[in-house]
Simulated assay, not measured.
Amino acid sequence: MTHDELENGSVLNLDFTKLRKVANCDADVLPAIAQDAKTGEVLIVGYANQLALDTALECGMATFWSTSRNELWIKGKTSGDYLKIEEIRVNCEQNSILYKVTPAGKGACHTKNKDGVARSGCYYRRITGEGALEFTDPAQV
């Protein structure tokens, strides 16, 4: 399956090995969710380490630790699609954080629709009863 088919196709191909890969990335991380503060839409689920959290607190932008590249990732630094932090929450067991954000660009996802515009968030497809994928909004295609 090509990268384009994975990100834009209708075939379900979940990566159930992701957490094993994260566990082997040589960084202590926890899940970090970016949620639109106004709409409640979940935009991104990533990971943060102490450096990412400290950077987010300092610069006011959603910041993650890229487990695949082993580097700090300030969302929007290259695309311009920053996620301005309104508040940061922590869950009851203190093993995940929630960035409540205001998108400062055209979208939050690194993928783009057919018009070349970044999608609002990364959860733009749903699983059908037949186990296939379909776009949640025709504008996201």
Rank of each mutant, 00 (worst) to 15 (best):
R125W: 10
K106C: 05
D28M: 08
R89K: 08
A108I: 09
N49W: 01
A132Q: 14
G107A: 08
D15I: 06
D54S: 12
K106W: 02
F64V: 04
G40R: 09
N70A: 14
Y123P: 01
R89Y: 00
R20A: 10
G9T: 01
I97R: 12
E7S: 08
Y82L: 04
S79Y: 00
Q140N: 15
D36T: 01
A48Q: 10
K75F: 11
K18I: 11
V11G: 04
A62C: 07
R119S: 13
I33P: 01
V29I: 06
L14A: 12
H110L: 01
Y47C: 02
Q140L: 15
V101I: 14
A34N: 02
D26T: 08
V29T: 09
L133M: 11
R69V: 03
Y123C: 02
Y99P: 09
T2V: 10
N91R: 01
G129P: 07
K106F: 01
D137A: 03
C109F: 02
E93D: 12
D36N: 15
K84Q: 11
M1C: 03
P103Y: 02
N70T: 05
G121Y: 13
N70G: 03
Y82K: 03
A52S: 14
L83H: 05
L133D: 06
N70Y: 05
R126K: 09
I33C: 12
L6M: 14
R89A: 07
V101R: 13
T102H: 14
A34L: 02
V90M: 13
G116D: 05
G131P: 08
F64N: 05
D137S: 12
S120K: 14
E134C: 13
N113D: 12
S68M: 08
D137P: 09
M1V: 05
L83V: 06
A62T: 07
R20G: 01
C25T: 02
I97M: 14
Y47R: 00
T136G: 14
K106H: 02
R69E: 03
R89D: 05
Q35N: 07
H110Q: 01
K75L: 03
K18N: 10
A37Q: 09
A139V: 15
Q94S: 11
Y99M: 12
N91T: 00
A62F: 05
D26K: 15
Q35E: 10
H3E: 11
G129N: 15
P31I: 00
L43V: 09
T63L: 07
L53E: 12
D26E: 13
E134Q: 10
W65A: 09
L53R: 09
G40Y: 10
L98N: 08
M61W: 07
Q140K: 09
A108C: 10
T111Q: 13
L133N: 09
N95F: 02
Q140I: 06
A32Y: 04
E58C: 07
N95C: 11
N8H: 14
L30D: 03
V90Y: 07
N70D: 06
I85E: 08
H3T: 06
N8T: 06
T67A: 02
K21I: 00
L98R: 13
F64L: 15
V90C: 06
S10V: 04
T63A: 06
T63G: 08
G107P: 01
Y82R: 03
N24F: 01
H3M: 02
Y123L: 04
A37Y: 10
V141W: 11
S120R: 15
L30I: 15
G105K: 00
I127L: 14
A32K: 04
A104D: 12
E93A: 06
